[in-house]
Amino acid sequence: MSKRNKKKNVTREPKQRVKDVYVARPFEGLPDEVDWIALRELVPAATAPLKLAEPFASQYPDREVTLATVLPLAWPAMTKPDGRVIVALQRQFQSGDVSRDIAASLLAALETEPGQTVGVPALPGEGPRLQDLLVAEPLDVTLHDTFEFWIDEEAAGDPQVKASLERANASIYPTVRVESMPGAYWCDVTDRCHLRIVLPDSEPTALAALARLSADGGLRIGIDTKFAGMFRAHGVLVPVWDLPIDVKAADCEGPVAEFAKRYAAALAVEEPLDAAQRRARDGLIGRQLTLR
C-alpha cells in the first residue's frame, strides 16, 4: 500500500457551540427601560454614567463606567489610560439577548488593561446581564452635539482622529428630550422634525390603547402634526409623529403631556376593542416597522 493511500486516525475535539437565546425585551426590569431603548435605537449621541452592583463593584473598585450610544467603528467598549470604561449600546455583532451582549462588553472592558483594545466574542454565551451588573437606578442621560466624548484632549490634535471625528459628527441630527413623558424625543432631520415616544408597555397592550385613541381621534399631538407610523423595538412600540419644521422641542411639552393623559386613560379601559377600534388597530399594524 502506498503512503499516499494510508489514512491516519486523527482525533478531533468537537467544537463547542455557543447557545444563543432570544430575549424579546432585553432591557425589561431596568429602570428607564424606555430610555435604554431610545438611546440604542433613536438617539445619535448620548452618554450616561453607570454604577456597578455588588459583587462587581468590589471586584473593580474605582472604575468609572459610562454608557454611550455608539463608539468609533462600532466598538463594543473602550478603556481609557486612566482606567475609565465606556461601553456602547450599539456594537458590530449581537446575539439574541442585547442585555447580555452589553454586559459581556462591559465585563471584558473591566478585565482589559487601561488604554488597551477591548476584545469581545460575537456570541457571549451564558453569563450576567445588565440587570445583574448594575445598580437599579434611573439613567442620567446627557445628549451631545458631537462625539468628542470619544477622545481625550491629547488625541484631538491627531489629523486622522480629527478627520474621523468630523465624519461621525456629520451624522448627528439635533435631538432633544421631551420631559413631559418618559421616552419622548424630538429630533430635527433637516427637512422635517419628528416626535418619537418609546412606550413602556407590552406591544399588545400599547397597540390596543393606541387603537382606542386612533378610533376616537385622540392620536394626533397638536393641530398640525401627523401620525407617521410606529417602530417595533425590543418588545415595545415607538409611535412617530411628523412635525412642522418650525415646531421645536419646547413646543411639544404641553401637547405631549395631554397625550400622556389620553394614553393612560386608554390603557385603563378593560373592555374588548369594538369594530371601529379593531379596524384602527389593523391600520396601525400596517404602519409598523421593526428595528433590528
Rank of each mutant, 00 (worst) to 15 (best):
V87S: 06
V87K: 07
A88M: 01
A88D: 03
A88T: 05
L89Y: 02
L89W: 01
Q90Y: 05
Q90G: 11
R91S: 08
R91W: 01
R91G: 11
F93K: 00
F93T: 00
Q94A: 13
Q94P: 11
S95I: 13
S95C: 13
G96V: 12
D97C: 08
D97T: 02
D97R: 02
V98E: 09
V98A: 11
S99H: 07
R100L: 04
R100D: 04
D101C: 02
I102F: 09
A103K: 05
A103Q: 08
A103R: 04
A104D: 07
A104E: 05
S105K: 01
S105A: 15
L106Q: 09
A108E: 04
L110E: 02
L110D: 01
E111G: 11
T112V: 04
E113L: 13
P114I: 01
P114T: 05
G115E: 07
Q116M: 14
Q116R: 15
V118M: 02
G119M: 10
V120H: 04
L123V: 11
P124G: 10
P124E: 00
P124A: 04
G125V: 14
E126G: 13
E126F: 12
P128K: 06
P128M: 00
P128Q: 02
P128C: 05
P128V: 01
R129K: 13
R129A: 15
R129H: 11
R129P: 11
L130P: 10
Q131F: 07
L133R: 09
L134K: 00
V135F: 06
A136K: 14
A136N: 10
A136L: 15
E137A: 15
P138C: 06
D140F: 10
D140G: 13
V141F: 01
V141E: 00
T142P: 09
L143W: 03
L143F: 08
L143P: 09
D145R: 15
D145C: 09
D145W: 12
T146L: 01
F149S: 04
W150T: 00
I151S: 12
D152K: 08
D152G: 15
E154W: 14
E154M: 12
E154N: 12
A155G: 12
A155W: 13
A156S: 12
G157V: 14
D158S: 14
P159T: 10
Q160K: 14
Q160V: 15
Q160A: 15
K162C: 11
A163Q: 14
A163T: 05
S164T: 11
S164P: 09
L165T: 03
L165D: 03
E166Q: 05
E166R: 05
R167P: 08
A168V: 04
A168M: 10
N169Y: 08
S171M: 02
I172Y: 05
I172C: 01
I172S: 03
Y173I: 07
Y173M: 02
Y173Q: 03
P174E: 01
T175A: 09
T175N: 10
V176L: 10
V176S: 12
V176H: 15
R177G: 11
R177N: 08
R177A: 12
V178H: 15
V178A: 10
E179F: 09
E179L: 08
E179K: 15
S180T: 06
S180R: 02
S180A: 03
S180H: 09
